[in-house]
Computed example of a mutant assay.
Amino acid sequence: MAARGHDDRLNLSAGVASVSVALLLIAAKLWALFQTGALSVAATLADSALDLAMSLGALAAIAYAARPADDDHAFGHSAAEDLAALGQCLFILASAALIGGAGAQRLAHPAEMVPTQQGAGIAVMGLSIALTLALVGWQRHVARATGNRVVAADSLHYIGDLVPALGAIGALWASRRYGLNWIDPVVAIGAALLMAGGALKIGRGAWDALMDRAVDDDMVAGIETIARDFPKVRGHHDLRTRRSGSRVFVNLHVELDGGQSLHEAHAIGAALKRAILARYPHADVIIHKDPV
């Protein structure tokens, strides 16, 4: 439970950081829009507004999933993470399609590929990249530590903003120095493909969790090894696993000496559960004890 509480705090911190960065970028881009009147700044402002909507939805899902189990949700609320991740993935796929389509259109009409930039716009672009880099770094750390798909999907969405921004700076430099105007749409298409691939991967994981698919074979084998080698456990069977959000539910039957006391059998089961949790701290383990 302590590990679960720590994970919830990490996930919530990532959600709050995402909303805060989106708010800061909206404020900065509003200022830049008033200063420059540039349509390109207006477009990035609209993108940041979408980021804020996505981040608010992700934060709500993380907060709801962190709620403890109750009478109506005996296994907790972590499935909300998978539902939110699916929604985010659909949004990312739509964004990738729009970005890729715009890049293809610009490649087909090279006369429209004349980039322009002003000082205020460049400053805001630099601020956007710096804040996004910091946010994505923290989100990746949290996603690795907790396995939260909502945080991973939100991170992917911000990477979708980061990659084109970095590519745009390189494309602008190449355009000014060498007249290579085609680099900008190529970067956009590459970013769209990266976003789509990542979205499909996260979406598949969320779908598998909602369909109660078993966890990966390595984790199943690891649990079986712990049970097989555990002292006084004569055997095991009916190992069942499923994932919900960042939590893994494990049900396991172990075979014990039927002549020992209930207290002794309970102590063996409790120790085995602690051993499994020590290796897989995100698991929720139920052990049923059968006589040999």
Rank of each mutant, 00 (worst) to 15 (best):
G197S: 12
L180A: 01
S155V: 00
A61D: 02
L33C: 10
G198C: 00
E112M: 01
I189K: 10
V114K: 03
L135G: 08
D290N: 08
Y178A: 14
W31T: 13
A53Y: 02
M219P: 11
M113N: 06
D161M: 01
R213D: 06
S261N: 09
S55P: 09
I286M: 08
L24E: 14
I189H: 10
S78T: 14
T132R: 00
A188V: 00
W138Q: 03
A74Y: 11
R234Q: 01
A14W: 00
A17S: 13
A69R: 13
V220F: 07
G15K: 12
I287W: 08
I169A: 05
I26C: 07
D161T: 00
A46I: 12
A209H: 11
L256P: 03
S246K: 12
G203M: 02
T241Q: 15
L172N: 01
G126Y: 09
I223K: 11
A3C: 13
V124N: 02
W173D: 06
T241E: 11
Q117W: 15
R140T: 06
L52R: 01
L50E: 04
V150S: 04
H263G: 09
A191K: 02
V142P: 02
K29W: 00
A2W: 04
D184K: 04
L50V: 11
A22K: 07
